Amino acid sequence: MDFAVGGVAISLMKGDITEVEADAIVNAANSFLEHGGGVAGAIVRKGGSVIQEESREWVRRHGPVPVGGVAVTSAGRLRAKYVIHAVGPRCGAEPIEKLAEAVKNALIKAEELGLVSIAFPAISTGVFGCPYDEAARQMAAAIREVAPSLKRVRRILVVLYGDETYRRFVEVFKKAFS
């Protein structure tokens, strides 16, 4: 499913984010950048331990990443150049609006890095427990807000694992971008 805003192409697709071709892959991270399970675990398994090692070094240097913030590492063996680790909220414990902040910060970081394409997972919908619909609304709102100001980033992929996630995101994005 494809949309566009401000000259930026936005594509929703079902699949494995570690397999897509994009300059950066966004990781749904925790503040300590420990990548054990979910999207984070899959990225390290596929990209190699260098991603976890660089993440720990980032935390040693800068401290934990705040909710809504981002950190960048290489992408190891992945097709991407970078992994942008975005820390979304734990639903019920932190404001859902921090999800939109994480998406905005990832897009701004991709722009700063001079990237053309970026791929997002459904941030905060796994162990962080955010409902698909609300996560999709936050992501769509953030993309709509930031995309018109992007000069280098031309393609945003939202890569969704599973039929239900994909269906819910399509419903929300159709309303947000129609």
Rank of each mutant, 00 (worst) to 15 (best):
A4K: 10
V5G: 04
G6C: 09
G7K: 08
V8L: 09
A9H: 14
L12C: 05
D16T: 11
D16G: 12
D16A: 11
I17S: 02
E19G: 05
V20C: 11
E21C: 00
E21Q: 13
N27D: 06
N27G: 00
N27Y: 00
A28S: 14
N30F: 03
S31T: 13
H35D: 09
H35M: 12
G38R: 04
V39S: 06
G41D: 12
V44G: 05
R45Q: 10
V50N: 02
V50C: 11
I51F: 01
S55P: 12
S55Q: 04
R60D: 15
H62L: 01
P66S: 02
V67Q: 01
G68H: 08
G69R: 00
V70H: 00
A71R: 04
V72I: 10
V72F: 01
S74K: 11
R79I: 08
Y82R: 15
Y82C: 12
I84V: 14
V87G: 07
P89L: 10
A93D: 05
L99V: 10
A102Y: 02
V103N: 01
V103H: 02
K104E: 15
I108T: 13
E111M: 05
L113V: 03
G114A: 04
G114P: 08
A119P: 12
S124C: 03
V127L: 15
G129I: 05
C130K: 00
D133L: 07
E134G: 03
E134P: 00
A136K: 10
A140D: 08
A142I: 09
R144K: 15
R144D: 11
R144Y: 12
V146F: 01
V146G: 03
P148M: 08
S149K: 14
K151N: 12
V153Q: 03
V153P: 10
V153S: 06
R155W: 09
Y161D: 10
D163T: 09
D163A: 10
F169T: 09
E171H: 01
E171L: 05
V172D: 08
V172P: 06
F177T: 10
S178D: 13
